[in-house]
Design a protein around this nucleic acid. Structure first.
Lengths: 117, 117
DNA sequence: TCCATAATTCAATAATCCTTGAAATGTTGA
DNA sequence: TCAACATTTCAAGGATTATTGAATTATGGA
């Protein structure tokens, strides 16, 4: 992930509706959600959700695929991971000793491995 | 970090000059940089850099302290770490098994410990 | 084919954000 | 106190982004 891409990702995530969409898609996993379901759940108009989904798509944060009449959107985990790493690289570029705490306290790990919170 | 704060942070980081400022400050560490030095290095006007520094300050991503005639800005590592964790929490909320790769391949660790790239 | 559904595109408006340069604030040393 | 420095504030404008509703495209079933 280069700065250009990070900038686009931050821009995409800096709008309330879009951030909510990404969070919903992240939680819904590989199954994803249809555009209409997203619109309904967030109570925004179809054309508005479509506008925001296009923005997220351009930033590479979501993918789409048609399924019958619906278009299913899924979170792009690679892109999200890349963004995290971009932030961390920055953080650690100059002063690793300061940034260690940033990396500590992970909030994610397979359920059976015991989180190091 | 709540959604409100994350939104503000993403907004702050979604502008080229501001992203560059944060990256510079992160690398410059606890010593930070004077507003004027930032403006000079990035070749933007003092008033413009001041505008962006205020935005970053409002988002909680930088701190400031006067030192003689200069005002020294430093990166807020806690806030950056919080943002990383916010993204990871989202990512891992529903599907930890998918998000493990996001957390893997850390790009930061003390120089003498050998990075797990 | 025809209709209903699902979603996108388009154009217009509204709202937000960025840049600029001039004026103001606060600080230091002569 | 005065002058120079470092930075911020302010108002105006220009540029970008978001919202709305109507029109359009695409799909599946009767």
């Amino acid at each position: 992930m280069d700065e250009r891409q990070a900038l686009a990702s931050f821009g995409a995530l800096s709008q309330e509706t879009r951030l909510q969409i990404v969070r919903m898609l992240v939680v819904s996993g590989p199954e994803g959600m249809a555009a209409g379901s997203i619109a309904e759940k967030l109570d925004v108009s179809p054309s508005n959700v479509s506008f925001h989904l296009k923005e997220l798509d351009h930033a590479g944060l979501v993918s789409q695929q048609r399924e019958a009449r619906s278009i299913i959107y899924t979170a792009n985990y690679d892109a999200l991971g890349g963004l995290v790493r971009f932030l961390m690289e920055d953080c650690c570029g100059g002063h690793p000793e300061i940034c260690a705490p940033v990396k500590a306290a992970p909030t994610c790990c397979p359920p059976d491995e015991g989180c190091v919170r």
